[in-house]
Structure formats: C-alpha cells, structure tokens
Design a protein around this nucleic acid. Structure first.
Lengths: 349, 349
DNA sequence: TGTTAGCACTCCACAACAACGAGTGCTAAC
DNA sequence: GTTAGCACTCGTTGTTGTGGAGTGCTAACA
C-alpha cells in the first residue's frame, strides 16, 4: 500500500520531481520544485520533504551536492498512481495495418519503425504466434517423380510448405486418397489434439505411404509449434544514443547487441503470451526486467491478439525516464487497432 | 600503373607503415619504421621517403607533428599489390552449411554470426536470389467455398503461397483443368519469358476464371521478381565500437542504423549480383563504397552461387585499417564452401 | 509546530595552464 | 645518398582553481 506512505504534499512534490526529470534528464533541485509547483513553498521546505522522500526510497541523490533523481520505486509509484492516461488517436496506423494484413512481416517491421520514430525509443514487435491454432487445410501434390509438395494452412492463415522426397511417382488416385485421409483426420484439430492414437490410425490407413504421413506430421508440428523461432522485428536501436545515461559506448553496445541478437528479446515476450489472462500492458522498470542488460532501462510491452489465440507482443525499450504516458498511450492505441483484426476482416467481406 | 611510381624501397616502407597501422590504429612515425623494417635506415632517411610518399598521395598526416596514416590510395595499393593471400581452411563452416541447407534463413544468420565473431567486424549475408529462375510447379487447390490456395514452386525450390478469394466453390473438374492449364503453359518459363501473349492465351482458355489466373500470375511475379525484398542477415554491428576511429557515438550510430535498416545495405549487393561476369571478391575502400555512411570504412563483399543463377552476397564492413588478408581469406573459403552446394547435394543423393 | 531565510559546506563541471613527448622538417656534416 | 642534431609543432595528459548548483543545518519567525 505504497500510496498511504505519502501525504498529498509529498505526492505532489514527488510527481513534480519525476516529471521534471523526465523532461530534462538532469537531477532536479529544491529550488526548481519550489517554482515548478503551485504549492507556494520555499526551497527549504521542499528540501525537508525531499529528505523524507529519499529516506522512504522514492528518490536518490547521485552525489552529495546534486539534486534528486527518481529511484525505481519512485518510477513505479509514478506509473501506478501519478501518471495520467491519455487516449489519443493513432488512426493512420490502424488503417495502415488493416490494409496490408497479407504481408505481415513487412507490416510488423513498419509498425516497429513508425513506433520508434514516434517515440524516440527502441522498439520490438513479435510476429503473431498461433496458440491454440488449428489445422485448416492440407494439400499434397505431385511435383515430379522424386518429390511431392506438402502445403499446410492453419486457421490463422499461416501457410507452410515442405518438399518431401519419394521413390517413384505416386499415382493420382493414391494422392487423392492421402489428401482425403489427412484432411478428414486432422482438419479442425489443434496441435495438442493430434495424439498418438490419431497418428497411428493415420499411418495404418496410409499403408505403404506412412513415411509420407510422418513427414507431413513433422511439418504440421513445425508450423504450429512456433516456440523455437519467434520472429522479432526491431527498430530504433540507435535511439539509445539520444539519452546520455545510456549512450556511453559500453552500455549502448550491450543494448544494441541485445536488439541485434533478437532472440534474446524473446524472454520479454514468452511469459506474457502464454498467460491467458494477460491482455493489458506491462511495465518493467530497471531490474524488474528479465533481461540483465536492460537494468538501466524501462521496458513497456503490450500483448495484441489479432484473433482467437493469435497473439503477439509490441515492446518499447528506453531510459527509465521515458515518457511513460506517451509510450503507454501509443501502445494502447496500437493494441486496440490490432486486436481482433482478423475477425473484423471477416465481417467486412 | 601505380606500381611503377614506387621503387622497391618506397614500397617496403609503405608496406611497413600500413601493416603497422593495421595493427595499432595509431599514426606511425619514422623511428618506428626505421626499427620495424630490415632496411637498416635511420629515421631521418625514412622521413625523407615518407615526405615523398605523402606527396604522391599514399599516406596522410593527421596533423603536423603526428606520424603518418595510409590514405585510401595507400590502402588500395596495399590490397592490390602488397597483401599476401593466405588460403586457410574454414572447413567447419562448410560442413555446417551443407548439413542444414533446408533452413536457409537460420543458416545464413548463423554464417553472419560466425563470420562476425571470427573477424570482429560487422557482417551481412544476403539470402540467395533466384536470377534466371524458372517456374517448376504450380498447384491450385480448393480450401473452402470462399478461398483457393495457390502454391508456386521455382527451380530453386523457393515456394510461395497465396490465398485467393473466390465466389462459390469451384468444382474439381474445373480445378484440374486450371491446374493443367497453368502448368502446361508456365512450367520451365523464366519471369521474362512470360509475356503478354502467354498471359492472353491463358486467360482466354480459363474463360470465366481468368480473374484467378491474374491472381496467380501476380504471385508468380512476386515469387520470382525478388528485387523489392532482398533478405539480408546481419551480425556484429556493435563491433564498430571496437575501433576508436569509428566508435564516437555519431559515426557508430549512423553505421549501426545502416545495419539495422537492412534495406540500405542492398545497394552493396545489387550491382554485383546482376553482373554475370563477377565471380570474385570486391573491395570498397572509403569513398569507393556506394553507401555514404561508410565513407570511413572499408567493405569487402563476395558473391556466392549456390547453383546455376542462384546467387547471394556476403559482406564485411570494418574500419579502413581492417585486416584485409584475414577478411579476404575468410570470404574466399566461405565462398568456396557455398559455391555449387545445390549441385553437390544433387550428386550426393 | 511548521515554515523560511541565511549560511557554510560539498562536489561536480569546466576552463586555463603547464609539462611532456612523439614526431616533424631542415641543416650541416659525413 | 645517408645520418646526426636541433628547433619547432601540436596533441595529450595532468594540475589547479574558480563558479555554481545544491545541500544540510541552524536560528528566527508566524
């Protein structure tokens, strides 16, 4: 119950300190606050209050004769209680996304880019993964004597192909039979529902072609079980240079590396994606983040859900003194634009 | 005819200056060279020779009382005439690549990573593009009442899918006819060979389904005309920080941005890929590079050819004082490993 | 009892300055 | 043609001192 530790005046002062620091990035002194607020208090009084706030752990003094900066606890209090939540429009984005849903990867890259340009922070967007996704359609076709092509489509319209080598061409009748077999047994099933029983039955009915069934099932598993390669798009990694507290070459280098080796970012994502309840926005301040290199940063992520079970994450990484209001506003609007797009598209047509 | 401008002694001195500078990154003075070489000359003599070399444009003096550093012209001379070309083995890479040719994108990312770790420079690898590529197989299939799935496979085994909306299901007979039509008319053709005549003929034969043919042809064009989205994998962008001459935040930021916005790197690639003759290794020193942000860097690229017409590029970007011998050695070995892999694989099976 | 003015103190930032040394060009002697 | 010697240049590094922003504390005040 943090908020009961602070009376109204202390709260106002803390709010003023943080807002000021968010703007300038410089430690803020008592005199500044005395003028900045409408409290009509002298700097001396403010100093007393600041001493208290420091004792309670909301602010820090980089060195004896400097002003104060917010601590992680201070930021957390700000995000939880002080910040106003705006609700602007980012409607251009909405239309943009809706109009281009086919070329998902380019759209997501573009989303990351626009968001980075908009906020001046580093951004990441993960491609939607298809939790609870179901097989919609499977097609085997003869390509030539040595190869057949397997195509698998899921409910989320994710398509995957595999070229399967075979010995000698398979005649058309067998092909039709195999196609029928696969679709009859697998369509509408989620990955978890395809159990050993189903597989055994399939293979039995396929007779001598059971090897092909195996290959197809492998591809199905690969298509639907995405955990090994979440696609992550990033942009604006060099924005870290814009904030002196992150721009010394060691820190910047670490952070940018993390963005370059995109897989490291996955840990920011996975826990949120799996949590069925979580539909909102997460804020990690400093050490709250699961990624060590980001201990001097804040991370804000939002989970979007294009359609039933089709989820991805958008994240913004910046200095702890990031403009939380703006960032969360951006993320919310974006999330709202993306949520349920698949369903909306269906309704339209 | 640069080499006739320099007598043997001047050449030796220039060689010594450049090698020394490659190692240290510091301007090198006459005394150092006097000891570094086996010429048994005093520093004063070296100074005289250095004055000549400077006048001829091979070396530069950052300021009056500093040693000399190589100019672009100096590096060029070094690369063209002085450097020894080693031929070590990077055989691990070879096996690695051969064993994993299915998951191309992961392999290429890995290649970029290994190369970056090996050289301590920034690296880029472009996915092979399929020049002169031909249609191998086209398959349309009914997914449900509203959608059909088009799958296109090229000679290079590049597969692309498109979901095409239709009004009402198409009966199986029509489907077979359309499939036959497409394959009979398009198989074996390169993009350039699919002309208006072919298209008109196709549409005519398709009758009321000519709209579907249009959609399929669009997808074919998209699959084979790759110029808009060359996939580029990068690694080690933060290596720029390792070289003081590139690590000030402005320069580093520019360079890293260029690597992040991968599309900007495409200009390094396109000219080489299209040039049928070019099979070797390109070196761009300083302003020779087509990318402005790399004026303080050197870029070395190699074009590999997995199979007939299936080409990609590997590039290394580092400071002008990069270890050209090592870099070119690495690239050559890698290139040799990749060249003709598709054909080799065929022979194996 | 809470608020404020005043003051001595701390400590960082920054500029000025000096000392150093690596390297040069030039001259004169070998 | 080569080299020793020397005066000179100029960037680097370390020192020193000054200014200012901000603090904590004390004492006076409402």
């Amino acid at each position: 119950m943090d908020e009961f530790e602070l009376d109204e005046r202390k709260t106002k002062i803390l709010d003023a300190i943080i807002r000021n620091y968010l703007e300038t990035g410089e430690p803020v002194g008592s005199r500044t606050i005395s003028k900045y607020t409408d409290l009509n208090l002298s700097s001396a009084t403010i100093r007393n209050e600041m001493a208290d706030l420091e004792e309670q752990g909301y602010i820090l003094q980089p060195h004896t004769s400097a002003g104060r900066i917010p601590s992680d606890k201070g930021y957390r209090f700000y995000v939880d209680h002080l910040m106003e939540e705006k609700n602007r429009e980012v409607s251009e984005m909405k239309n943009f996304v809706i109009e281009h849903t086919e070329k998902m990867d380019q759209v997501l890259q573009q989303v990351a880019k626009i968001l980075a340009a908009n906020t001046n922070y580093a951004t990441m967007v993960t491609a939607p993964t298809y939790h609870k996704n179901k097989v919609k359609f499977i097609q085997l076709s003869n390509m030539n004597e040595e190869q057949i092509l397997a195509t698998i489509v899921t409910e989320g319209n994710l398509v995957k192909n595999k070229i399967i080598p075979v010995n000698g061409e398979i005649d058309n009748e067998t092909m039709l039979k195999l196609n029928f077999l696969l679709n009859a047994n697998l369509n509408g099933l989620a990955l978890q529902e395809i159990n050993l029983g189903t597989i055994a039955k399939l293979k039995e009915q396929a007779g001598i072609h059971s090897a092909i069934i195996s290959d197809v099932l492998d591809t199905v598993a690969e298509t639907m079980g995405q955990e090994d390669d979440i696609r992550i798009y990033t942009s604006g990694a060099t924005n870290f240079f814009k904030y002196p507290e992150l721009s010394d070459s060691e820190k910047a280098s670490e952070l940018i590396s993390t963005f370059e080796e995109k897989q490291q970012l996955a840990s920011l994502v996975t826990e949120n994606l799996l949590d069925e309840e979580n539909t909102g926005i997460q804020v990690y301040i400093g050490n709250e983040s699961p990624i060590q290199t980001m201990r001097d940063c804040s991370v804000v992520t939002a989970t979007y859900e294009l359609g039933e079970g089709v989820r991805g994450t958008i994240g913004i990484v910046g200095p702890k003194r990031m403009d939380y209001e703006k960032v969360m506003d951006n993320l919310k609007t974006l999330k709202n634009s993306l949520d349920g797009i698949l369903d909306k598209k269906k309704e339209e047509t």
